[in-house]
Simulated scan of single mutants.
Amino acid sequence: MRAKPLSTIGLDADDTLWQNEQFYRLTEARFASLLADYAEKEHLTERLLEAERRNLQLYGFGIKGFTLSMIETAIEVTEGRAPAHVIRQILDAGREMLNHPVETLPHVPETLERLAGSYRLVLITKGDLFDQERKLAQSGLSEFFDAVEIVSNKDIATYERIFARHGDGPDHAMMVGNSLKSDIIPAIAAGSWGIYIPHDLTWSFEHAVEPVDAPRFKRLERISGVVEFVKIVNGEW
């Protein structure tokens, strides 16, 4: 039998299925207040972003790398004089992020329930293994997924490999997410559909220009729109 035009749907996790970036922003504000005597907030934010970018190859994506980057930035802006109590509070902030309850985004559970069974659903997310597994377990969404892939990076080869392993290849797959850079552009380049669902807060590292001229690009304002769109793709409407 020929594969359906669309048989597999990949979904990003952070800020697609549940809140994530808002906790980073709150912790950044807390970090800035801790070091207010040493640098202005805007300068601290810039230095922290530089440290995060610099450390991605070492620590990868996630809260642990973010916490280490905050400590590194604190040491740099204080010229090695960061008080021990400041370092301790940064570590406390990181632990609080790792223990924060999961907050699923609107329409997510009912959307996954409607898609499950009719399509292979694959969770494709970057970040720390333990933290992403924790969030998935706490979200109550794990029952909807046929496979879970926690990866160090999302590039063309990642989507080619995952959609070949868990589906009928990229040509018969769709990736849904809030990051143009990680979820949409490489998935389209691999041959898949890329469904962009913007989030109010997206880390600047994930920003990119919308590929509006790409035939397999679609922007939806809410995840519930995926249900109707996949039916259109498969000619069911």
Results as ranks from 00 to 15, higher is better:
L136M: 07
D183F: 06
R25S: 10
I9Q: 01
Y159V: 01
K135Q: 11
L11Y: 06
A208W: 05
T158P: 05
G225P: 07
Q89I: 06
A39W: 03
V108Y: 03
K135L: 04
L123M: 12
K231F: 04
G194I: 00
S139C: 00
I223L: 13
Y59E: 02
P170A: 15
S192I: 12
K154E: 07
F23Q: 11
N153D: 14
I124L: 03
D14H: 03
A173H: 04
A157V: 06
G60W: 07
R161I: 07
L68E: 14
I71F: 02
V233N: 09
L180Q: 11
W193Q: 04
E72R: 04
Q19W: 03
R161M: 13
S204V: 15
E52G: 00
S118R: 13
E221N: 11
L58M: 09
A208I: 06
A13D: 00
G140S: 09
M175Y: 05
G62C: 09
E28R: 05
T158R: 02
V148P: 12
F145T: 08
L201S: 10
V122I: 14
G94M: 12
A3L: 09
A189C: 08
G191Y: 15
K231N: 14
T104E: 02
E46W: 14
P170L: 15
E133I: 05
W18V: 03
L98R: 14
P186F: 05
Y196C: 12
T158G: 01
A189N: 12
F229P: 07
A189E: 14
F229T: 09
L220K: 01
E149P: 02
A187L: 11
T78K: 09
W203H: 11
N20W: 00
L105K: 10
E133K: 15
K135W: 05
Q138L: 13
R165E: 09
T104L: 11
K4A: 14
W193C: 02
L6S: 06
T73G: 03
P198G: 03
Y59T: 02
H85L: 08
D171H: 13
H107C: 05
I156T: 13
Q19A: 14
E206R: 11
A187R: 12
R219Q: 13
T125H: 06
W203L: 09
I87G: 07
A74Q: 03
F130E: 15
Y38V: 09
N153G: 10
Y196N: 13
F31A: 02
M97S: 00
I223R: 01
E72W: 02
G10C: 10
E46R: 15
G177K: 04
L123F: 04
E40G: 06
L44Q: 03
F61E: 08
T16V: 03
K231Q: 14
I90G: 02
M70A: 00
K135C: 10
H199W: 10
L129P: 10
H85P: 02
A29D: 11
E76C: 11
D213Y: 08
R216P: 13
E96L: 06
A189I: 07
W193L: 05
D15V: 08
H172R: 13
